[in-house]
Amino acid sequence: MNPIKQISFTLILVLTSLSISAAINVYQFDDPVKKERFYNLIDELRCTVCQNQTIAASNAGLAKDLRNKTYKMIQAGKTDDEIKTFMVERFTDFVLYNPPVNNSTLLLWIGPAVLMLIAFIFLISNIRKRVSTPVTEIDAQEHERVQTLLKQKKDGNND
């Protein structure tokens, strides 16, 4: 590779990487703590338009607006709780990927544990029953029949 080619190749690499990082760093923070809070928050807030994405992952217009709103609120010195309250007041608990325990989410929170408990009780009672069931004794005649049947089975296998 000649030097000119080498330099231009390097330049292309450097310039393209610059433009990519510019696209990611739309949000400028002077404080790394704020930056971390911002990225944690937008990863915890759900996009109401495309419902299985966070506002960090979604390209929807509303998600973009809510990212901007979150950014502005962080820069204005609002706490995480204040920002979450702001979102919940407008879009309900639905916007939180980690919803709080209250009347409407109680089933969601304790449901799996309750089902687990029921299954466990069922399992224990079944095991107990099986252990306590007495083995039925058979008389001599039946015993003889079992022997014959077993013998037949054995002979059959030898064929």
């Binding site: 109401t48 338009v49 809510l66 709103k69 879009f91």
Partner: peptide, 13 residues
Amino acid sequence: VTGNTGIDWGVYG
């Protein structure tokens, strides 16, 4: 035009 009032009204669709 900014959609800010829309956010206050919980508009998403």
